Computed example of a mutant assay.
Amino acid sequence: MTSTSIRAEAAVRPEGTSGARTAFPAVAGLPAELRAEVVAVLEEQPRETRAVVRRLLGATVAALVSGDRRAWTSAREAEETIRAGSALAAAGVRPDPLLVLVGRLTAWAVERAAGAEPASAGRLKDVVRVGHAVTRGLAGGFHRHARSRAAAPLDGERLAAALLSGQRVPGAAASYQVLAVRCGHGVLDRLPALGGVALTRGCAGFLLVPEAGPGRGPELAAGLRAALPAAWVAPYWARTAEVPAAAATAADVVALAAGSGAPAGVHRLEDFAVEYAALRHPAIEAELRRLIEPVLAGPGLAGTLRAFVRADGNRTRAAAELIVHRSTLDYRLKRIAQLTGYDPVKPAGLQVLAIAMTTAHARTVRAQFAAVPDPR
């Protein structure tokens, strides 16, 4: 037995039975090509829809083989088909592969009935009607459930998650002021609404305020800052379809602010234009990461470089902040130059190293924001 046929036997067998023929005699009797298609459709199903799809396929093939459209179009069978479509919609699974498979099964059953002796026009019609009944019920159940979900109002967190994920939300505002927030200490349990909807995960979150024009960003950011003194905040206005991109931009600004060692507060994209361009360019960001990795791994070197950047290249101030002798600072700066090829004592070298350090730390903060729109 080939690996495909072994998988086919397993896929069409429900849990707790010993063989495919015990599960669906008609399915086990399908041609190998169709059995493989049944396997593919079943394997693509998530756990919550697999059983209902398996039952539907078994009943469909049995009805197609018998040509008994009256049994299939009974209230019970029709309800089972609609239930399968509804289950797919609830799980977020498109019905297209299953509908295509039902069409293929119907075509096979028609060809089979046409070749039977004696051939019967009435039987052929009944087979086609079974196929139509299944596809109609399946598609109807799916779209009915999808429409009911779309019509249901979303709570604040679900609305924010939908907008941040780029979903079309009925009744959404035309535009939003998107504010990215990261708390410096502990978990960000909640954000003050300020007339909008919020979503948080861990120490990061977003606040979306509807119909707040581009000029209201600083005002709303100041409101968040007042409520969360130890937070980095960045506002960005966008039309509804562009909310995901605006959220990504605002999150990157916060990530760069935190990564640069800037104090908590309200930050703007123009404050980190060069770093933002580097962070958004994968090849440049990767090269900067490779450049700074030896410094991050070296004992005391990362803290030394950060202090030297904060001191604008002033050795006396940096040594005082680090509470080390000037000679110790000079040794560490020389070691950084040896490891990276860029001399932090020179302005150009210090600028490159500062950007590399900032983007490296920003990647960690960026990952915290990336997890925010994920469903719980």
Score class of each variant (00 low, 15 high):
367 A>C: 04
156 G>H: 09
318 A>Y: 04
142 F>T: 09
254 V>F: 00
115 G>N: 14
303 G>E: 15
222 A>K: 14
148 S>I: 00
30 L>P: 09
106 T>V: 13
162 A>S: 06
365 V>G: 07
336 I>H: 00
93 V>Q: 06
306 R>D: 15
28 A>P: 04
168 R>I: 11
167 Q>W: 11
369 F>L: 03
363 R>C: 05
253 V>M: 14
246 A>S: 13
190 R>S: 13
127 V>H: 01
271 D>H: 15
131 G>N: 02
47 R>E: 07
253 V>T: 14
73 T>L: 04
149 R>S: 02
20 A>G: 15
244 P>T: 15
351 Q>I: 00
125 K>Y: 13
197 V>I: 03
226 A>V: 03
171 G>E: 09
51 A>I: 05
207 L>H: 11
268 R>G: 10
133 A>G: 08
87 A>Q: 15
342 Y>P: 00
120 S>M: 02
199 L>M: 06
265 G>C: 07
68 D>T: 08
333 L>D: 00
287 E>W: 12
196 G>A: 09
244 P>Q: 13
94 R>A: 10
211 E>G: 01
70 R>T: 08
62 A>V: 07
277 A>W: 02
374 D>H: 02
298 G>P: 05
125 K>G: 13
306 R>N: 12
289 R>Y: 04
28 A>E: 11
338 Q>H: 07
374 D>V: 12
160 A>H: 04
161 A>I: 03
307 A>K: 15
31 P>M: 12
89 A>Y: 01
222 A>C: 02
92 G>H: 11
29 G>K: 04
333 L>Q: 01
265 G>L: 07
241 A>T: 15
271 D>Y: 10
246 A>C: 11
365 V>T: 09
32 A>D: 08
283 A>I: 15
130 V>F: 05
304 T>L: 01
138 L>S: 07
273 A>M: 11
305 L>V: 10
68 D>W: 08
117 E>L: 07
143 H>D: 12
199 L>V: 03
160 A>C: 01
232 W>Y: 10
330 D>K: 11
166 G>H: 06
220 L>I: 00
132 H>I: 07
236 Y>A: 14
78 A>C: 12
243 V>A: 10
336 I>D: 00
29 G>W: 04
240 T>E: 11
99 L>R: 12
221 A>L: 03
210 P>E: 02
181 V>K: 00
16 G>V: 11
174 A>G: 13
208 L>W: 01
367 A>N: 10
174 A>V: 05
374 D>E: 12
62 A>N: 09
249 T>M: 13
143 H>M: 01
293 E>K: 12
41 V>I: 08
275 E>N: 06
343 D>M: 03
209 V>I: 10
354 A>T: 11
351 Q>C: 02
186 G>D: 09
304 T>I: 06
2 T>K: 05
44 E>N: 13
233 V>T: 05
55 R>K: 02
204 A>G: 05
50 R>V: 05
306 R>C: 10
245 A>V: 13
18 S>D: 14
5 S>A: 12
316 T>C: 06
251 A>F: 03
153 P>T: 04
375 P>S: 05
170 P>L: 07
148 S>K: 13
255 A>T: 05
47 R>Q: 05
88 L>F: 12
